[in-house]
Write a protein that binds this DNA or RNA. Structure first.
Lengths: 113, 113
DNA sequence: CTTTAATTGTAATTAAACTACAAATCATGT
DNA sequence: ACATGATTTGTAGTTTAATTACAATTAAAG
């Protein structure tokens, strides 16, 4: 074993894809690139409260997690289908809640096995 | 349909987790947070050619993709096990190549179905 | 054509990342 | 112990990215 042993929970630091995504938060530039939505527009949506950024004292710039990026992509699709921004955001919010609660049930069931 | 229809490949902009990860590239700050390895150290590893950053003319700062982040985590583990930096990096490189070629075979097989 | 929604532009500022040094620490051999 | 190369860490000064706080367009609906 070498020196300080930095941050050793060793055994498995190795993240699977899902773990990785739950840990990940990315900046607005990256989100703009991934989604094709301009930074300016993302800021506007966030100012209006339609999407939310990670809230943490150390972080001073806008950061988004995976769920939020999915939301953004869904909103974009709905906009293209003709929904208003608000309607799109609401619809996505509801869809997300459904998926979320279904996932929690599943998770819960798994944990008992 | 509304206005400009921004960047419409519609149908499925919806990314699954794997798609998302292949598109994603993240900055050094985020990588440092995820991996627990200081930015300074990541820069050093990159300078020595042990890890590589995304290479694109528009990008001026260090960006890493998912594979590279996995590499970083593996290197970290091996360092804690007592390997030299270079030995760790080599070992990881080989491991990655194996996984990669196995994956390609699998992918190839799937595509034919 | 007026009003509200939504997007876009931009100057000035703050935060994050970069480079290019140098110093400190660690591992190994003599 | 000392020297040596490997690795990590520190930092001043600079560049790039993101933010705010305005304002101006453009689009959709009555």
């Amino acid at each position: 074993m070498t020196k300080k042993s930095q941050n050793n929970q060793s055994a498995s630091l190795i993240l699977d894809e899902h773990d990785f995504l739950t840990k990940l938060i990315v900046g607005i530039g990256e989100v703009a690139e991934i989604t094709g939505i301009p930074q300016r527009q993302l800021r506007y949506w966030q100012e209006k409260g339609l999407i939310k950024t990670v809230d943490s004292p150390e972080i001073t710039t806008r950061r988004f997690n995976y769920l939020e990026i999915k939301k953004i992509l869904l909103i974009k699709e709905l906009l293209d289908e003709g929904f208003t921004l608000e309607a799109a955001a609401n619809k996505v919010e509801k869809r997300m809640e459904l998926i979320n609660s279904a996932f929690k049930k599943f998770k819960n069931r798994q944990d008992k096995v």
